[in-house]
Amino acid sequence: MQGVLHQILSGLATGGIYASLALALVMIYQATHHVNFAQGEMATLSTYIAYTMVTAGWSYWVSFIATVVVSFIMGVVVERVLMRPMTNAPVLALVGVFIGLLLIVNAMTGWIWDFTIKTFPSPFHSSTPLLGGFLSGHELGSTVVTLVMLLCIYLFFRHTSLGLAMRAAAYNPVSSRLVGVRVGWMLALGWGLAAAIGAIAGMMIAPIVFLDPNMMAGVLLYAFAGALLGGIENPLGAVIGGFAVGVIENLGGAYVVGTELKLTLALVIIVAVLMIKPSGLLGRTVMSRV
């Protein structure tokens, strides 16, 4: 029983990271109906930027905030430069651009920081187990960071006029323009936010999985699974789905499939959701059959 509880808590800790990235994916999906396959690589790049700042001697939290800001700008720029001209392009062209972006960012990180695995610091030093031995300091700390971030995002979207405008632009771009919302910029801000969220997810997962250019591939997979599980049209669902996937991954890894097949578990979740409840647990059925 102790073991199960431990697995669940530690699953929630990593689940928070999946939840963040799932939220980033869903934010872009809601506004554009496209899945950003480069979301993981962009987060990896952000983490490398943080790594460079920390190794240059900056304090962790200064680096953290600077990285979030830089990533936000990066997301905005990518939307303005790469995505904007593609507004009315067919899906295949968009997927092509996402994959191109993935390749470029992946190559860039490998080129600049080489492909060797690096350790990434955690700001939560305590190696002594907390909560009666259930969680490590980093697990607890990263969960807190994730929850604070999710809360901030929730407050932003619920209680600020800019957040409202961003939601409006995603739901109904035509009506949004008619009340004076600059829809194009809302999309760019969405990309910026998604990149910033991804950056936090990257910095929180890096101490666990170590830093290398392909670090986020697996995390992105769990985020896909989480987003689908919760409903890809529903941000809250995606967050819950992300946490759920973290727990399923940990329990499954510990008791069912073993750690070697953890990624396959994500694939199984994706396929199972599509077979059983394609709109996700909290989603509306809006998909077309064709």
Partner: peptide
């Protein structure tokens, strides 16, 4: 929220 958007 609809009304707030009117005054956005």
């Amino acid at each position: 929220e609809n009304m707030k958007l009117g005054a956005y």
